[in-house]
Design a binder for these strands. Structure first.
Lengths: 346, 346
DNA sequence: CGGCAAAATGTAATCCGTTACATTTTTTAA
DNA sequence: TTAAAAAATGTAACGGATTACATTTTGCCG
């Protein structure tokens, strides 16, 4: 591959002139500029970006830490990131971490070794924790080159992008309460997750406001997979006094739950209502179509990338906390509470 | 950030000794080694990988061109890539191209400008086409630093990883024929795609082998989305003589089709059988669970990455064509052909 | 035409780690 | 003990683009 010296030789100018022709053309006379551009073309010259970045110390790469790309919601978030990153001439380095702290630390190290300028974390965990911190002895407590989105740390040392999960869960619970449901179960995510904690809080807010007492046995743990929704629903159906509605913390679990309920010979929503969260594309094509909370997934990605770039390029002094809107989408999977729940027959 | 010279100063040795301590420790005496390692720790030294890579000319980055990450199948493929790449210390740069040639070319340019060493393309299109070719005036017709997987070019100038789509489609069609179906429709992908062409060919192979004549009106175009499956199924149901089975080129379209069929008041599989392709996680949780062709999605990704790294590191002389196995998964969405198809009533 | 400012161009340092080659130190064998 | 071989360490060039600073050329006015 030809380099800048080759071009300089061809154009019979210095390397500085070639560089200027490409970076600040107005500093170069028209005649020289043409000569240089011709040489560039003749040599098929493409600046070696490794060299440029090495010198500038900026890689224009962003690491994305995602628990799993195989999750439809995260896939949409990443789509949005990609869009915003491409627009600003940044590239995304994908880190599929499977929620593993070690793996996250490995990717975070890419920032410290100048393989990437910054990092976006979609999970409530600081991947720099285990690593030696960037010199915090600095004057200001320096924002980490990081943005935390979707599921965020309570005290994130960086900008965050979230949904008001508590309000969203509350809204969905209210929707079910308004339909007459009193025994409303929730299939939640991993207990430690702040996201789950907030959604459970919203659920309890709404119950309390309606004067319905909280029943611990109606809180069933899942892991956001179809199978876990299926299993959790089975547990709930096996209760002595099963729920008339199940609110799942994501659409996958809701679809799994619906499948399980149908296998018990019960109908959705006639016997049991089911609600989801996320509004993934499959939600509208579920049977019955799923009532859910729509999240602006792509917007999460776009916003996170923009905030990160603003941070990196020093346009932020304080870490903003952006809250994105949700929307309750009412479809056919939720309906009026039945007078009494038939006994499952499987 | 401290650099190697700083460490050398602290350890009172030369930079070469520091470098050797980290790269080839056996060339350095134990005493010096310890001194250097202590200095490394004291300085919090992390080699600047940009510098390393600039000098070596290898970025250890791979670009992945994917039509859309929001597709469940591709998401799994990417998961597999990630796994293999991480294992070999490579990073993945994600290029969500939306099937746009311009966008692909933009990402391909990253290889030419030394931002990435190679590229994996999941679509049948050579992204380097529009670009100035790497000097092919070379001695051998030099393999492109690329691997083409999933949907491959007929004459790919690089290693490829594919499924025998023709055989798979044929197998599924045979399955439907064996159930007594004679009017078997296919919801296919975009006409230009080799993948679609092969699957249609397999479908026709099986029909012909069974002595069933091919009917053009039973070939309905889709674009791999849920909605397109829904719409295409609607068109098929509206035919004067609708099919008794629909074979969809992916699971999303199959799920969309099932939904449309149910809305017409018909039952799956009692009135119409539906089959998919890919075996995404939602397939097993569809209602009814979907008969489909399982593809080793993660293995596609892993194999593609390994082949690419082998290519880049010069371990391949010829471009291999790897064919991965498929498996017919029989679930409840396909069943015996009905005596006669009831008229849809919507 | 002299003289000065402005514009254009050139020179060389710089970013940081690696490594060929040179030099010094240690070990080994005679 | 000494020469030669082996091991350890050091010096400096290198990769490619950018850019501060130096130098040359051009343009303009008196």
């Amino acid at each position: 591959m030809s380099n800048i010296r080759e071009v300089a030789r061809l154009a019979e100018v210095s390397v500085a002139t070639v560089s200027r022709t490409l970076q600040q053309p107005d500093l170069v006379s028209l005649k020289t500029r043409n000569k240089v551009l011709a040489a560039v073309k003749a040599a098929g010259y493409k600046p070696n970006l490794m060299a440029v970045r090495f010198r500038s110390g900026k890689t224009h790469n962003l690491v994305v830490l995602v628990p799993t790309v195989a999750n439809v919601f995260f896939a949409r978030v990443i789509s949005g990131m990609q869009e915003a990153a491409h627009e600003k001439q940044y590239a995304l380095l994908l880190g599929n971490t499977l929620g593993d702290d070690e793996m996250e630390a490995a990717y975070a190290r890419m920032v410290q070794t100048s393989q990437a300028d910054g990092l976006i974390q979609l999970r409530a965990h600081n991947p720099f924790d285990a690593l030696q911190q960037p010199d915090s002895a600095d004057d200001n407590p320096a924002l980490l080159p990081m943005v935390n989105a979707c599921e965020v740390l309570d005290k994130a040392p960086c900008p965050t992008v979230v949904l008001d999960n508590r309000a969203a869960a509350s809204a969905m619970t209210e929707h079910l309460l308004a339909l007459g449901h009193r025994r409303i179960a929730m299939i939640k995510g991993p207990a430690r997750s702040p996201l789950t904690r907030d959604r459970v809080a919203g659920y309890r807010d709404a119950l309390q406001a309606a004067g319905v007492s909280f029943a611990a046995e109606l809180l069933s743990p899942g892991n956001f997979s179809l199978q876990s929704g299926f299993d959790a629903a089975g547990d709930l159906l096996a209760l002595p006094n099963p729920p008339t509605a199940i609110f799942c913390e994501n659409d996958e679990m809701a679809i799994g739950a619906i499948q399980r309920i149908k296998q018990s010979g019960l109908r959705v929503p006639a016997d049991i209502s089911v609600a989801g969260f996320d509004d993934i594309s499959f939600a509208a094509f579920a049977d019955p179509p799923l009532t859910t909370i729509a999240q602006p997934a792509e917007e999460f990605g776009r916003t996170a990338v923009r905030l990160l770039i603003d941070t990196l390029e020093g346009r932020l002094s304080k870490a903003p906390k952006v809250i994105l809107p949700f929307e309750l989408i009412t479809r056919a999977s939720t309906g009026p509470a039945p007078a009494a729940v038939p006994t499952p027959n499987d």
